[in-house]
């Protein structure tokens, strides 16, 4: 019985560890599919939002109709 309980606990711990590792290695499509020509360090207002996952936070759209910028404003990188 002790071995069984230890096994269940170990499975849960390893599962949580896997979850943390996999979630942290997850990349957003806007990071993965951006070229050097595309400045998407801070995606800006033309997007639904940087943390968009199709299931938006309810407060995200209250202030502005098409989402708002999160984080600091991007520096204009013009050369």
């Amino acid at each position: 019985m002790k071995a069984f309980v230890a096994a269940v606990i170990a499975a849960i711990i390893l599962g949580i560890g896997a979850m943390l590792a996999l979630t942290s290695s997850q990349r957003f499509a806007y990071q993965a599919f951006a070229t050097s020509g595309a400045r998407v360090s801070e995606p800006g207002t033309n997007l639904v939002g940087p943390r968009w996952d199709g299931d938006p936070a309810p407060d995200e759209y209250d202030a502005e109709p098409h989402g708002k910028v999160r984080g600091a404003a991007s520096e204009p990188k013009r050369s």
């Binding site: 996999l22 290695s25 997850q26 990349r27 957003f28 993965a32 968009w52 996952d53 199709g54």
Partner: peptide, 14 residues
């Protein structure tokens, strides 16, 4: 299309 592409686990809604 999926909002996240790293792995299968939590790639968000299609």
């Amino acid at each position: 299309q999926y909002p996240r592409v790293g792995n299968f686990g939590s790639r968000g809604k299609m």
